[in-house]
Amino acid sequence: MDWQAFWLTLRLGVLVAGVLLLLGLPLAYWITYTRWRWKFLIEAVVALPIVLPPTVLGFYLLIILGPRGLPGRMWQALTGRSLAFSFGGLLIGSILYSLPFAVQPFAASFEVVDRRLLSASAVLGASRLRTFFRIILPLSISGLVTGVALSFAHTLGEFGVVLMVGGNIPGVTRTVSIDIYDKVQALDYAGANQTALVLLVISFLLLTLVYGLNRRRWAAWPWR
């Protein structure tokens, strides 16, 4: 078991889930409540990573984050370091790759919050922010947990994007899934099996948590 890769993957997963919680909530709020007529374009862009092969996403990211892309050049000019083949680049790639897995459950759970409750809150004098934190968020807990858990689990299991953007640098970009691939290449089936089993168990526990929490009574509120 490559513990360095394990901890790196865990760190990546937690960071991705955390950033997506902060980034995904306003984005999901906007998608749910905006009346902008072109919002379906944004929805399509957010959903792209679901259907796109990870290598395609990874390829474009590599171009953009690399010395030929504008963001990559700017980062290099600012920090003197390259984003490609770094943990930072890996983080950006993973965030984009898992974006729909956070935003879609968030938006879906916002969508089912009765609009009349939001009107009631506003009539009672609550600001949009207060309505969001006191009404929308508490009634969307199951969607929040689902989004965070799925983006975390999805990050643990990613392979193509990591390989394209991060490569395989121990302690920097080598994640568990890369490690498994490496071990199989080296015919170390016992080692690959051990790591794969850990990943399987973690993923299973996470999904159990998600489905278990979704059975809470406010997820399927019988009375409105």
């Binding site: 009349r116 009107s119 009631a120 809150s121 009539v123 009634l139 509120w221």
Partner: peptide, 15 residues
């Protein structure tokens, strides 16, 4: 506006 409004479906906060 500070208007008291009782909605037809009441819209009580269930949580």
């Amino acid at each position: 506006r500070r208007v008291g409004y009782v909605f037809q479906d009441l819209a009580l906060f269930p949580h």
